[in-house]
Design a protein around this nucleic acid. Structure first.
Lengths: 346, 346
DNA sequence: CTGAAAGCGCTTACAG
DNA sequence: CTGAAAGCGCTTACAG
């Protein structure tokens, strides 16, 4: 490789090292290290000479080398489903803030809800020797992580529990939140309530369905299986599920949407529906109060979910080695209008 | 440090190394390296013995050591304003996808719109020797980066140009998009149009204001300075700015909102306003078509912004060393209703 | 207060 | 096909 035409070499290794600084300042390597790291025991005059050499050469400590020697990388990994999903934004930010307060950097990645991709990403992070991992799992078998955890990589799962290993997990109260949502609709007079949720292999979808059934049963209401639809949250699938529930002689008079993607499509379907239909969605979203009627939701505290998980992670890194914990973050029902619509006369 | 009660040591350095694998397999270090990296020239039998040792010991290559020796870290940094802002989600994801396709990991951080924090974060990433940086700048002076760029850290700015250094940048066409928005309102009969934007030191805010003024001038319309308000996008500030413009004997009949945070607050203000007021917002958002009236916007392609920047970054890493480029991504006006409301009679 | 030597866990360059 | 030696750029442990 040769230097470029513009004179700025892209070659790595072209940078000055502590050795170069030491030579220029006429001191030993260890003295440079002391100055760079602000360690005591350096004469003001020596320090000044070293600082001058650092500035003159444009030296910046290579943390890759430091990391290798020190053991800790001061970085953590966050694996979530999709960096573009607004639900994960506040969670991502909260994890970042906690990492930052501990002097750690955040390496980020999307699993795209693909177990193989999750594993590939997680193991790449382990190879980088991140100190810890926060994982929103896509896979349902995490035995591949057991050796890494045993080797010291702290791991906290968020939003869904780990599969087939015992690990820390921070969850929203999906079961309780779903119960609240459905009980709310029942309290407003509904007896035929539809549930459209995510794929049943996803823990939260399963829990929300369980909350739905429990609330219906608690009110002595039967559940017609045509009122329940679990599957991918792609708009076409949700649209046809909703349309089917709203058709026929005994249509549902209310819908409970299992997450924000479902809610959005449900709003679109209901906007074109002749009769008013009540709607409660799981997950809040920014403009829920601007739509007409405003959307009643079960809000999760995504930032708190992230903050709690990250704090637990750093507690582990500080040596806490009690048994894996399961923490639940409460949800909150926010009535805004759509969930208070009474049943249409049939 | 001692092992924990649960028997899994959190101690680092407890992991097997290639040396351990070599010893167990009864081969040399280099042979292990060959097997781990899939290099040719190893007898099937030798390879099998090494693989067995790897499995038995739970060996995983330490990429920190590899990085130190190889020079490249196979990681890039992305510094943006706020990981929780939905505008950056698709951009973040797009950068990640490009990084992934090049085998690189993504280190992420928020500047919180604070120049000092941006610099701190960027320099931390440089110390980690990321191969490249994608930066949505908060600072307006990036001379601190010049030595790093000269030392080989490829850098591409996005959304706003670098300050006081010559560097690659990928922008949305804020000027053209703003012109389109205001021309659209003028075409629908408006003559008194308000503009509420972000702080003027932010490049995009400045460009959008310029587009507003140019469109007004092109139509021969005067601009009363009480129709223009730039500042923080906090709801209170935007609310009072909008309220002021809508009051008095000669209120504006239309608003152009400079970004999505402004738009959201504007929608709330207009919902409580007695007369209908037209609105066009810069930036699209998910539920813009669910609000009544649906919101007319100038949409940016955030994913394309991110993809373009990341691709340019990797082209630099592959050795492209032509002069820094400025690339502009077009915007698109999406009429949905709010921007087509005619002026209220005064 | 200062510095030479050894080592973190790999890869590179080379020799057999 | 295989491996011993040197080195990436730091920090650690130690001696002066």
């Amino acid at each position: 490789m040769s230097d470029t035409a513009r004179g700025t070499s892209r070659r790595y290794g072209t940078r000055p090292t502590m050795k170069d600084v030491a030579a220029r300042a006429g001191v030993g390597l260890k003295t440079v290290s002391r100055v760079v790291n602000g360690e005591p025991g350096v004469t003001p005059d020596t320090e000044r000479r070293v600082q001058e050499a650092i500035t003159a050469l444009g030296f910046r400590r290579n943390d890759s080398a430091r990391i290798l020697r020190k053991g800790r990388t001061a970085s953590i990994g966050l694996v979530l489903e999709d960096l573009a999903d607004p639900f994960y934004g506040p969670l991502n930010r909260a994890v970042e803030e906690v990492a930052r307060s501990h002097g750690a950097l955040l390496i980020n990645g999307s699993s795209a809800e693909d177990p193989a991709r999750e594993q590939e990403l997680v193991l790449a992070l382990c190879a980088r020797r991140v100190d810890g991992l926060v994982i929103i799992p896509a896979a349902d078998d995490h035995r591949y992580l057991a050796p890494e955890i045993a080797a010291g990589i702290a791991t906290v799962f968020v939003d869904r529990p780990a599969g087939r290993i015992d690990a820390d997990v921070v969850l929203s109260d999906s079961f309780g939140g779903a119960q609240d949502a459905v009980a709310h609709l029942i309290a407003h007079g509904h007896r035929r309530i539809g549930f459209i949720g995510d794929q049943p292999r996803i823990h939260t979808a399963h829990e929300r369905l369980r909350g739905y059934r429990t609330a219906m049963a608690a009110a002595g209401l039967p559940v017609d299986e045509s009122w329940v639809s679990l599957g991918p949250t792609a708009p076409e699938r949700v649209r046809s599920a909703a349309t089917a529930m709203l058709a026929g002689p005994q249509p549902v008079t209310a819908l409970f949407a299992g997450n924000n993607r479902v809610t959005v499509t449900a709003v679109r379907v209901l906007a074109g529906h002749p009769r008013p239909v009540a709607l409660v969605g799981f997950d809040d979203f920014e403009l829920a109060d601007l739509v007409n009627p405003a959307i009643t939701v079960v809000a999760q505290d995504a930032a708190r979910l992230g903050r709690t998980a990250a704090k637990l992670l750093f507690r582990r890194l500080d040596g806490a080695d009690d048994a894996p914990r399961r923490m639940e973050i409460p949800t909150r029902l926010i009535p805004r209008g759509s969930g208070e619509i009474p049943p249409a006369e049939s």
